[in-house]
Design a binder for these strands. Sequence first.
DNA 1: CCTACCGATCGGTAGG
DNA 2: CCTACCGATCGGTAGG
Lengths: 210, 210
Amino acid sequence: MMETSRRREIEDVASSLFREHGYSGTSVRDIARALDIQGASLYAHVTSKQDVLWAIVERTADQFDGAADAAMARVAGQGPGPRLQALVRAHVRVVTDDIGRAGVFAHEWRSLTGERRAAIARRRDAYETRFRATIGDGVASGAFESVDPTVTAALLLTTLNGIATWYRPDGRIAPAELADACADHALRSIAAGRRAPGPGTADPEREAPR
Amino acid sequence: MMETSRRREIEDVASSLFREHGYSGTSVRDIARALDIQGASLYAHVTSKQDVLWAIVERTADQFDGAADAAMARVAGQGPGPRLQALVRAHVRVVTDDIGRAGVFAHEWRSLTGERRAAIARRRDAYETRFRATIGDGVASGAFESVDPTVTAALLLTTLNGIATWYRPDGRIAPAELADACADHALRSIAAGRRAPGPGTADPEREAPR
DNA sequence: CCTACCGATCGGTAGG
DNA sequence: CCTACCGATCGGTAGG
């Protein structure tokens, strides 16, 4: 249907602008100008600016959830290491696939208000819990260092979401290459069995605990 | 002088609001309201909204540069590992010391225009180069895995800057504790001499190179 | 999808 | 630091 594809065009253009200038830094007329129509004409297709943001955020949340579901199915029965890497790789692929939507999902969801904002906060937390749980499993089994799963999951997801702010799809780094680099980076940062820079190692900067 | 401290109050309030709602999502009257004065009264102390952003970003850039200078002086003569950890720890301390300014520096500098934006982009790049160079040294000496210094520095700094978006100063994680966790996280993610998840390891998800 | 238009709010100035 | 005010732009509506 024509209506649906026009609606998608609006969301594509809006997510790109929202990522670049922020939700409140993008006017309805900015979106319309990019589509070569009048500002008021946008309202033939959408009911409000908030509605466009909501649609983008929801659709992107679906993509992250779906990618994580598929990734976890593929590594079912395997240990925490491969499971974490699969989650990381799936996340990076969604980000590099559309840095506009991914950036909006990562940063602009705060511009939602009321129940919509609360709903997306819950979805984001549920998604983050998959990372927390996998990290917690690895810590419990001894496969990972005894890191704090909450802090580590937060650090990790911030890293992966941040990709949307600096990644250039036309640059020298291919999406699959970045996904692999991130998966290795994540596992190395957490896997047990290394020459650990623990309390025994000289570390003049360390100050806690005293 | 009274003038100076009032000016600092404005910047403090503004950086907190800018971090929370973005530069364009914060009006001059929002800043004034937080100070219990009229919107127009702000202009007795500042010449423009952009000027406030510029002052915040510049002052924060000074803090990051100064902290990195001091950290590097303290670990002079040491290897890439301790040097990288010192840089990470210094960065995290600046972030946790004032998440408002750090968040604005990390994300809102894009709202600057013209020469100011170009100038801060150059400063940010010079700062990032310190991380890139240290990582490059470690790769060259064999102390680090053969990672891409540019990608790794980008991933690392995004991680550290992202702390400003989720860290709660009144939460259960102390600043020094987070700084140490990040320094360990960074070194683990890059240090050589581990049971590497290389090409020999089973990794059904990997797809590049084919 | 357009023209014409709405009230509200924006960053900022004048004059005290 | 205040009151009063400026032109420009905001998100959105009416009616075609």
